[in-house]
């Protein structure tokens, strides 16, 4: 096969999916992690366990239920249809939603740990210095949790790059819409296009390694000392 004719569309689609997912993840995971790190609600462990589920479930299980939920007979599917959005499975939007849920624990856990590590004191100090709760969150909690936020974002991004099962279940294999890298590689292998599979797979291997290396390099630095 002529490698110059290799279709790079899955690469761009994957990067687009991972970027949008990461942005949404930060918006969802940050408040959720803040709440989990601070609540004394007795059933908070239920939420913790729910958030962690994607870590242990086979992606097919998650994908299957998302398919039912988002499909024309699911609650969410009926809602989106009545709102005129249509049903989400086998669309890019559906893929984004599935990715956010699937990568949620990878973003929530580092951020939650970072918030918990701040402790009460800096926020109490900020309160005695006239900062309102929202002000304290923005001016103290977020900057102090920055390493955790970066870790959460990078892990969420990297994990989205690598997903396969959920994508296949909820997105299918529509070129330009839902055909991401992992699915494209699978396709190439199935059609015995090993050279093309190699290029994509090796690229992904190298890229993921670089992402993780950068992450560990950063977090391996001395964290902010508490004074």
């Amino acid at each position: 096969m002529d490698l110059s004719q290799l279709d790079l569309q899955p690469v761009w689609l994957t990067l687009k999916l991972a970027s949008i997912t990461t942005l949404l993840l930060l918006c969802v995971a940050t408040p959720l992690a803040w709440w989990l790190a601070n609540t004394r609600w007795r059933y908070r462990q239920v939420i913790n366990a729910l958030v962690a589920l994607p870590l242990v479930l086979p992606p097919t299980v998650l994908g299957f239920y998302l398919l039912l939920l988002l499909g024309p007979k699911g609650w969410v599917g009926q809602l989106t249809e009545s709102l005129g959005i249509g049903v989400l499975p086998f669309t890019f939007s559906g893929l984004v939603i599935a990715s956010v849920i699937y990568s949620l624990p990878f973003a929530v856990q580092p951020i939650q740990n970072a918030f918990a590590a701040i402790g009460k004191r800096p926020l109490e100090v900020a309160a005695t210095l006239r900062a309102s709760p929202w002000d304290r969150f923005i001016s103290v909690a977020l900057p102090l949790a920055k390493p955790g936020l970066i870790t959460g974002a990078v892990l969420g991004f990297a994990h989205t790059l690598g997903e396969f099962g959920v994508v296949l279940m909820i997105g299918g294999n529509i070129p330009g819409q839902t055909q991401v890298l992992s699915v494209a590689i699978f396709d190439h292998v199935e059609s015995y296009e090993y050279a093309a599979a190699h290029v994509l797979a090796a690229g992904m291997l190298g890229f993921s390694f670089l992402v993780l290396l950068t992450l560990y390099w950063r977090t391996g630095q001395r964290p902010l000392e508490r004074v």
């Binding site: 800096p122 900020a126 309160a127 210095l129 004074v227």
Partner: peptide
């Protein structure tokens, strides 16, 4: 009154400076 609305200042046992 909420803490941040009380016109007081608090010096803690440890300086508790903001590290960032």
């Amino acid at each position: 009154l909420a803490v941040h609305r009380r016109p007081m200042a608090y010096v803690f046992q440890e300086a508790s400076l903001f590290p960032h």
